[in-house]
Amino acid sequence: MSEMKNALSFRGVNFSFGTDSVLRDVTFSVPQGEFLIIIGPNGGGKTTLLKLALGLLVPDSGTVSVFGKKPGEDRSVAGYVPQDTGRNRDFPITALEVVLQGRLGFPGAKLSYGGKDREAAMEALKALKMESLAGRSMGELSQGQRQRVLIARGLASDPGILFLDEPLASIDPETRDMLLTLLGELCGRLTVVMVSHDMSAVSAHATAVACVNRKVFYHDSAEIGPDAMEQVWGRCPVELVAHGIPHRVLAVHDHDHGGEPCSHD
């Protein structure tokens, strides 16, 4: 199988924080153009998986590759939309300046952003219907608007693969639907990898699902048709729910938008 056909691949990857094993023997490949949604309980290793793919963390053993290269080797290939923790709400910066950060690290970088960078940034804001708010400071924007700016920043580098960490958490339903539609349109042109708790998003948009809890089980597009998600829950050997509840339970949460399906007690 040609390595180049895969947008992302993990081979025998192990990762631990100190003595705390987070991911064990992770092997899967994501072909180009997929819309992969990563689900699993809190602390199960979803964000760690993204950070390994981005090169922000380095595996203890095994290899990660993005379009056949080491993560971080080719900066232009991956876009990143980190989880919006609201930590930086008061930071003095406009939406446009945030999106421009996505243009950093381009070859031949000068001391300041050029006209081409601004064009690309405005283009990305337009895709998210945020161009009219480009000059607003981030602190003035709503949570959904801020999330759209962060996605525009991830897209500003015109990446081949876009990684999103919980972009649907605590945003309004309207923005949520708009984002899912947009990401659905984008996949095919680029590969989308999204960590989410939103089960209805999985049913409606995912072409592949990775269940993550220390181990990773990858369900590819052949396995999940539009109606076959139920079967995925039944078949996946990864324990997605704490305390031994089988993750068939998850399907119950199909209409629980942005809910927290993985913390039953």
Binding site: G72, Y80, F91, Q101, L104, G105
Partner: peptide, 23 residues
């Protein structure tokens, strides 16, 4: 500050993202 103005802004705003852009 002048040499690294863009990098310093990105580093100040979001370290993880800045790292993915090679800062």
């Amino acid at each position: 500050g002048m040499l690294w103005s863009r990098e310093i802004a990105a580093f100040s705003y979001d370290e993880d993202f800045a790292r993915t852009r090679g800062v």
